[in-house]
Each structure stands twice: as structure tokens, then as C-alpha cells.
Design a protein around this nucleic acid. Structure first.
Lengths: 135, 135
DNA sequence: TCTTGACCTTGAGTTAACTCCAAGTAGTAC
DNA sequence: GTACTACTTGGAGTTAACTCAAGGTCAAGA
């Protein structure tokens, strides 16, 4: 795992260079070290952090929360408790999201089964379809 | 289950009246019937449809997709296959989302356990913390 | 009669998270 | 020296999904 340029990181994590620069600008990623020509290079630590960000962003953890976390990291040990608290809040949020998701998945599967079984047929209106859709 | 006014529906599904009117404007909800004074009233069928929308929106199914579905409903039986297809696509999308979510949840839980066990201690930098965070 | 409150309309404003643009530089290839 | 490519910057533009504001109608109650 070596130092990578911005495009290499961009490919590795499937995220645009512009987004990486944007994350840096807003303080989600700390000052990235530069080569003599001014180009960024991303070391192991940064890559790990970016992987974490990308993972959590795929679950729509707000950028703002991640920035808060990053800022607390910079402030050192005085923020240990607050950091853990933030992680726990986000976890709770994701668990909630998961239960919503399960409800939606169940609903969609049910509805698809109605299409498959032919129970939803010609000319149904919103109202008529609803009668069937509402389990 | 009787006819409800816009604020009643708004309370029932925890969604703002403005949002309900917005949904109607963009064709996600069909023309809502009016009382003599011009006020909307929502009948059973509409309420069922709104419940469906709210459920799927909690899982971030795009409004645009729901509008597509609503428009196809209006077009009748010729769109049966396309409607089922749309539902299947959204289902696949949600399943994907769920697996992302599980990954994030696992990650957060792991990280929290590191805080709890005291393995993340004073003065860790991004880099140092990453070493621990990366399982 | 006056006021309050719930509703209406059109159209504009907001927010999050990118995403793109123009103009410039640094390094390599011929 | 002239392309060509990969980067740099600051700032503007985009998109989705609301969300609000201004001004108007109407019915019920003091």
C-alpha cells in the first residue's frame, strides 16, 4: 500500500477527484501532503480514512457528521467521549434506516407478487389498486 | 377510514401539507377532490397511495421513480409490465442499499467497541487511528 | 361586523453534496 | 520548443426534494 495520486485514489475508491478535493476543502480530509510540484499524494493513513468515509457515505451518513468527527479527532483526547457519542448516534440512525428499508422491501416484494400472480390487472385506478396493495 | 383534510393527512403520515401539495403538483398524487370551498379532501384510496409513498420515501426511493409509476398507472394496462419492472428495479436498489448499510453498521460497531475497550486513546492522529480502525 | 384560523395559489428560496469550468503550471516525449 | 497530460486553483453551477412567503378566499365565533 503505497502513496497514491489523486486519480489513483479516485479509481481505487470510485470517487471523483473533484470530490476528494471538495472533502479536503470542507475539512473532512485533513491537509493532504504534496509532492514538489504541488500535486497531492495520499499515504496509507489517508487512504484508510477515505475508505471509511466512502463506506459511511454509501449509507448516507451526512458529510457534516463526518466533518464533526474529523474536527474532534484533530482536537485530541478531550473529545474522546463526544466522538464515541457521535458514532453511537450514527449507528442508531443506520439501524433505524435499516428497519425502514426492511419495511419497504417487504412492501415491494408483496406488490411484485401481486403483479406476478396477475391480481393486478387491466384498468385498475389508484383506488382499486390500493385495495390490493394495502396488505 | 373517512375522508380527511390536508392537515389531517399531514398529521396521520407525519408529512407537511406543503409536501402533499408539492406531490400533487408534480403528479405523484393525482388530482385530489375538493369540497365546495375548494379545500382538498383525501379519500381512502388516496390515503393508501400516500402511505405507500411515505413508506418508500423513508427508504429514499426517488420521487421521480414514484412519479413514473404513478404516470404509468394512469396509462392503464399497457404499462403493466413496465410497472412491474420498475418495482423490481427499486427492490434491487433497496437490497443493495441494505448490504451497504450492513457494512457500515458493522464498521461503526467495531469502531465503537474500540472506544469502549479503551484501545483508542489519547492523541491518536488520523493515521494512528486508521491503523486500528481498519479491521 | 370584525377577527381568527384553515385552507388556497403561484412562485421563489433553501439545503446538501457534489460537479464542473476556466485558466494556469509542471513534467515528460519528441 | 512544442505538444500532451496530469495536475493545480477559486468560484460558479447543478440536482433533488422540499419549504416557505405573499397575498387571497371563506366560514365560524365574540
Amino acid at each position: 500500500m503505497a502513496n497514491l495520486t489523486i486519480t489513483e485514489v479516485s479509481k481505487k475508491y470510485n470517487i471523483k477527484p473533484d470530490t476528494l478535493r471538495y472533502y479536503e476543502r470542507i475539512g473532512l480530509i485533513p491537509k493532504v501532503p504534496r509532492q514538489s510540484n504541488g500535486n497531492r499524494y495520499y499515504n496509507e493513513g489517508l487512504q484508510g480514512w477515505i475508505e471509511m468515509i466512502v463506506c459511511l457515505r454509501h449509507s448516507d451518513v451526512p458529510v457534516e457528521k463526518l466533518v464533526d468527527y474529523a474536527e474532534m479527532l484533530n482536537q485530541g483526547d478531550s473529545t474522546l467521549d463526544a466522538r464515541e457519542e457521535l458514532l453511537k448516534e450514527q449507528l442508531a440512525e443506520l439501524e433505524q434506516r435499516k428497519s425502514n428499508l426492511n419495511r419497504s422491501i417487504k412492501r415491494l416484494k408483496h406488490k411484485i407478487s401481486l403483479y406476478d400472480s396477475g391480481e393486478i390487472k387491466k384498468g385498475k385506478s389508484y383506488f382499486e389498486e390500493y385495495k390490493i396493495m394495502d396488505d
